[in-house]
């Protein structure tokens, strides 16, 4: 068993209690003489709090796996990545990667990407409130595309995946039951295919985060802009796609609250 906790000159009693709660095979437990029933309560509380936190931050993963499996996963993740923020809702940044390393992640290869979507949705839910600075629209009138940069709302995230993440997300979280059923059927069909590629976008129009799929061109265009390139450079990435319209994209982007402001480069 790895020694998780270190002793220091002050606060030995606190370190010993922490170790006794986190490591039930610790040799310190008997020496400290803590009541086993009491320790078990703290152990169960820790696991229950952690499981509750993950179930809130990763609702899709928890629905896909079911609670009995999730308890074991919670325990493993807790040991690997203990909380350090003092706020359970900020715990779980590495959960998607962790999922990709465990048996359930191998068995359901889309699970890790579902966790990544869940995490971005969770972060967007508590993210800073941003909306378009209308006055910055003037930059589009006054400047050439080569000198224009678009700064996105901080709650906008893009994720490239080989799985139908949007459909899986909608199948579990869309408000409308019929929409959920249709999304589930679509997700199952797409999962049966050998290979797909999706660019998924997480964004927050008002308070409720949304998940949608971008076309390849929309994805390439936005990724280029998000890397800090000019509007002209971004437009060059989609010039071969005649169906892409910047004007149409801009209207949708404003409607979806994707843009924080425009600025001159």
């Amino acid at each position: 068993m790895i020694e998780l906790f270190e002793n220091k000159s002050g606060g030995d009693d606190q370190q010993i209690l922490l170790e006794a709660i986190w490591n039930d095979e610790s040799p310190e437990i008997n020496k400290a003489g803590f009541n086993k029933q009491g320790l078990d309560i703290y152990r169960r509380n820790l696991l229950a709090n952690a499981q509750r936190a993950l179930s809130i931050s990763f609702p899709t993963v928890f629905e896909l796996l079911g609670s009995s499996i999730s308890k074991n996963i919670t325990y493993q993740f807790l040991r690997l990545s203990p909380p350090s923020q003092g706020d359970w809702s900020q715990w779980g940044k590495g959960f998607s990667h962790f999922i990709s390393t465990i048996e359930e992640g191998y068995r359901y290869p889309y699970l890790a990407d579902c966790a990544a979507v869940d995490w971005h949705v969770h972060c967007a839910l508590h993210g800073i409130d941003q909306s378009l600075d209308q006055s910055s629209l003037q930059t589009l009138v006054n400047s050439e595309p080569e000198h224009i940069e678009i700064v996105f709302n901080q709650n906008v995230k893009l994720l490239k995946t080989h799985y139908p993440l949007t459909e899986i997300f909608q199948a579990h979280h869309h408000d409308d039951e019929l929409h959920r059923e249709v999304a589930m059927i679509k997700a199952q069909k797409l999962l049966a295919k050998e290979s797909i590629e999706q660019m998924v976008m997480i964004y927050r129009p008002e308070f409720k985060p949304e998940v949608s799929t971008l076309t390849a061109s929309e994805g390439a265009f936005m990724l280029c802009l998000m890397a800090g390139n000019s509007l002209e450079q971004a437009l060059n990435t989609v010039k071969s796609d005649r169906s892409f319209s910047f004007e149409q994209w801009l209207l949708t982007a404003i409607e979806r609250n994707l843009i924080n402001y425009f600025k001159e480069k």
């Binding site: 906790f5 270190e6 220091k8």
Partner: peptide
């Protein structure tokens, strides 16, 4: 708050 392998951790309780 406690330390784990040199890192600060939160007890969650």
């Amino acid at each position: 708050w406690g330390k784990e392998q040199g890192r600060l951790i939160h007890s969650g309780d």
